[in-house]
Design a protein around this nucleic acid. Structure first.
Length: 292
DNA sequence: ACCCAGGCGGGCG
DNA sequence: CGCCCGCATGGG
């Protein structure tokens, strides 16, 4: 029996529950036990497990992972624990509404995710709900994912299938996973990425360039491209505008008057600048919480 | 039975 | 261009 190497991380202004409930890619394929506070998820290099303890924004994390991966670095990066939340809150607290959202969801972080996984997650998300998105992602992983071994060589789970695997999967197989009309987009996007573009190589590009490239991929439009830029590439200036954000912005800032997506992008950029993505995530969860 | 869900692509005026 | 429609499917 091999000794499991545990690593400890301490973080301020971090709430795993708020983060996990905020409908980011992790929500769709990780497993979080609310009673035991244990999070388990497959990453590209192995299976990661972490236990979260703490309250009022102070968090103590004990993590370990299979393979060569450093659990500490993985968790720190995945949950953006190097971000200075106090500073971010100061910057985006432009009004009462955002301040209330921060108070309600204090410690919620944006997460960093693999660009390809994020792409699939948000194609699946269109005209869909979180519960079903989660179900579909799990099905895709179980049917097409590659095995991940634990330290003793036993299969502990499956990792997200790469774009070649999905390009070779049939639309029918993805329909069987519950993807519905999005199955076609998933296969087309996988084929496109296999043949025309290497998503990891976009990491060093600017937000604008990344969004432009992503929108070349079939099944990806303005909103999904911004989600991928934000949560897959960590571009904090991205501001995805879905029906909820649109409705909330119109209600909170425009007296309920309908606005075009383009106008709302300009509004967000001007108001929240290069931290618009954080503002969006707080407005999103709070807007849904306040459901009209 | 109906309506909705973190949109997108295609077709039409 | 801008607008409108269909798209699969499970849960309220």
């Amino acid at each position: 029996m091999m000794a499991v190497r545990l690593q400890e991380i301490r973080a301020k202004v971090f709430d795993i529950r708020h983060t996990f409930e905020s409908a980011q890619p992790l929500t769709f394929y990780a497993y979080y036990d609310y009673a035991d506070r244990v999070l388990t998820y497959p990453s590209s290099k192995g299976l990661v497990t972490a236990v979260f303890n703490g309250s009022s924004g102070n968090c103590r994390i004990v993590a370990h992972s299979s393979g060569t991966l450093s659990a500490k670095e993985e968790i720190t990066s995945r949950f953006r624990l190097r971000d200075d939340m106090k500073k971010i809150y100061r910057r985006i607290s432009t009004d009462k509404f955002v301040r209330a959202a921060i108070k309600e969801y204090y410690g919620m972080r944006l997460t960093r995710n693999d660009p390809w996984e994020t792409t699939m997650c948000f194609i699946v998300s269109q005209l869909n709900n979180v519960k079903r998105i989660t179900m579909i992602m799990h099905n895709i992983i179980n049917v097409l994912g590659s095995p991940i071994m634990d330290d003793t060589g036993v299969m502990a789970g499956r990792g997200f299938p790469n774009c070649e695997s999905l390009a070779n999967a049939t639309e029918k197989k993805l329909m069987a996973c519950g993807a519905g009309f999005r199955a076609k987009y998933l296969v087309q996007a996988a084929e496109f990425c296999t043949n025309n573009i290497e998503l990891d190589k976009l990491k060093c590009r600017s937000y604008g360039k990344i969004k432009e490239q992503l929108m070349e991929i079939p099944g990806i439009g303005d909103k999904v491209a911004d989600c991928i830029a934000l949560m897959g590439y960590g571009k904090l200036e991205a501001f995805p505008i879905d029906v909820w954000i649109k409705r909330t912005l119109e209600n909170m800032y425009f007296n309920g008057k309908p606005k075009k997506i383009e106008e709302l992008h300009e509004f967000a950029e001007e108001r929240f600048g290069d931290l618009a993505g954080y503002a969006e995530q707080y407005i999103y969860v709070y807007g849904r919480h306040m459901r009209p």
